Amino acid sequence: MASVFTKIINGEIPAFKIAENEDYMAFLDVFPLVKGHTLVIPKQEVDKIFEMDKSLYLGLMDFAYDVAQAVEKAIPCIRVGIAVIGLEVPHTHVHLVPLNTIQDINFTNTKLKLENEEMIEIAEKIKSFL
């Protein structure tokens, strides 16, 4: 059964896309810890990050680097944090989280509930820096 991220890749589920190429995609987390919380995924469905082919892994990190640069320019923050948890969805994904405090990347925090219009605005602002 396809993961929710594969369904996003295939256009079966909508997403607030930020960037995409042949192998990777970045989009806003719909359950963000903070505004600008972005997910970066390989299009190839691999459950665990360290089960990925090394070249796919390195490509994912390279793609995430470019997206993180744009997030940091678009969202007021001290830096962009990165986390790979991998328990929520069985498809490798990197969290890019704008940070102003260590608590901003605490995954036990209550998630934000942003309106679609605000999510679109955030995605467009991040895209403008790519």
Rank of each mutant, 00 (worst) to 15 (best):
M1C: 07
A2R: 09
S3I: 02
V4K: 11
I9R: 07
I9F: 02
G11E: 00
P14K: 01
A15M: 03
F16R: 06
F16S: 13
K17N: 03
K17M: 01
I18C: 04
N21P: 09
E22A: 13
Y24L: 04
M25V: 10
M25R: 10
M25C: 08
F27T: 00
F27E: 02
L28Y: 02
L28K: 05
D29P: 09
V30R: 13
F31P: 06
P32G: 05
P32M: 12
P32Y: 08
L33F: 08
L33N: 14
V34R: 03
K35Q: 10
K35E: 11
I41W: 06
I41R: 05
Q44T: 14
Q44D: 10
E45V: 10
V46A: 03
D47I: 14
D47E: 15
M52G: 07
D53S: 12
D53G: 06
D53E: 09
D53R: 08
D53W: 06
Y57K: 09
Y57E: 10
L58F: 09
G59P: 07
G59W: 08
M61V: 12
D62F: 13
D62P: 07
F63A: 12
A64F: 08
D66A: 14
A68R: 06
Q69S: 15
A70R: 07
V71G: 07
A74Y: 03
I75W: 11
P76D: 01
C77G: 00
I78D: 12
R79K: 13
G86H: 02
V89A: 01
V89W: 00
V89E: 03
H93M: 05
H93A: 01
H93Y: 09
V94S: 04
L96R: 05
V97A: 10
V97E: 07
V97Q: 09
P98T: 02
L99E: 06
L99I: 00
L99M: 07
N100H: 00
T101A: 04
I102M: 13
I102E: 15
I102H: 15
D104N: 09
I105H: 03
F107R: 04
N109K: 15
K111D: 01
K113H: 13
K113Q: 13
L114N: 11
L114R: 11
N116S: 14
E117S: 14
E117D: 12
E118F: 12
M119N: 15
M119Q: 14
M119L: 15
M119I: 14
E121Q: 14
I122L: 11
E124H: 04
E124T: 03
I126A: 02
K127L: 01
K127S: 03
S128C: 00
